[in-house]
């Protein structure tokens, strides 16, 4: 039975001083789906990811992954279970070439176990694996792009690099924080197939987005956050038709 959700969030609360950033948020995500989270700026989407992945300690609530409580785990343990994330503000190792950026995740014991990497501990073995992963995510293998310093890469590649870091861990879930923002239409068009392929590989995706139209091309189910509260959850058409959602979005910015 696939009815048990892969990720279950229950009654999550988080306050920063007086500011209630998340209030009683609950939702389920099922194996293999792409789950969208939308909401105006400052509605707590990034905070939600931070809480789920352990980067911020939640005040109360419970997060379970495959039925196992992960609410109080440190971030590296959660990542080691396969619950990975990208950062909205990209965090590559700017002083390293793109392919060397993946050495760090490939160094983790999860990556070692999952891969049984060809070549094992041989010097440079991780470099080849890293270039394979980069190719998978859209860095042309025969070009110079994978060898360029991360500081010289354009935003589109940095976003891919964020996803690549998750892929290096052989993830079960990737939580993507605004992967589309800051990209042009054509760049988004080239990333969407990658995302669909990840889904076909059996990876569950949680996507935070501002670009609703693009998000709705890949997702079947979205949740709306507003001022840290869950407004509603449903299929994209339902959500867009909802008055409160319109108000929340129009109240703060254009759709």
């Amino acid at each position: 039975m696939s009815s048990e959700p892969i990720l279950q969030v229950r009654n999550l609360h988080k306050a920063f001083g007086g500011l209630q950033a998340l209030k009683d948020v609950s939702f389920d995500v099922h194996q293999g789906e792409i789950f969208g989270i939308i909401g105006p700026n400052g509605s707590g989407k990034t905070t939600l990811i931070n809480c789920i992945t352990g980067f911020i300690r939640m005040d109360s609530g419970k997060v379970s992954f495959r039925g196992k409580d992960i609410s109080r785990q440190p971030p590296h343990k959660i990542a080691a279970m396969g619950v990975t994330r990208t950062f909205q503000i990209m965090r590559p190792y700017y002083t390293l070439p793109a392919y060397k950026n993946l050495i760090v995740p490939l160094f983790s014991s999860r990556a070692r176990k999952a891969g049984g990497w060809r070549g094992g501990g041989r010097l440079g073995a991780r470099d080849t694996v890293s270039i394979d992963i980069l190719e998978e995510i859209g860095f042309e293998r025969d070009s110079l792009v994978p060898y360029k310093l991360a500081s010289t890469l354009p935003t589109g590649y940095l976003k891919r690099l964020e996803i690549a870091r998750c892929l290096a861990l052989r993830p079960e879930i990737i939580l993507c924080d605004e992967v589309f923002s800051g990209l042009s239409m054509s760049e988004i068009a080239s990333i969407i197939p990658l995302i669909e392929r990840l889904q076909m590989d059996g990876i569950t995706l949680i996507m935070i987005e501002h670009r609703l139209r693009e998000l709705f091309r890949v997702t079947k189910r979205v949740m709306v956050l507003n001022f840290g509260e869950k407004l509603l959850e449903g299929i994209p058409e339902e959500v867009m038709a909802d008055d409160e959602v319109k108000k929340a979005y129009l109240g703060s910015e254009e759709v």
């Binding site: 992945t53 980067f55 440190p74 971030p75 590296h76 343990k77 990542a79 080691a80 990975t84 994330r85 950062f87 965090r91 590559p92 190792y93 700017y94 002083t95 390293l96 060397k100 050495i103 760090v104 995740p105 160094f107 983790s108 014991s109 999860r110 990556a111 870091r165 998750c166 290096a168 861990l169």
Partner: peptide
């Protein structure tokens, strides 16, 4: 490289399933 990551970018190291 992991050490350097710890120095410059510890959040990314944590996200890479490594304990700082």
């Amino acid at each position: 490289l992991v050490f350097r990551g710890v120095k410059d970018n510890d959040q990314a190291v944590k996200a890479s399933a490594l304990s700082i």
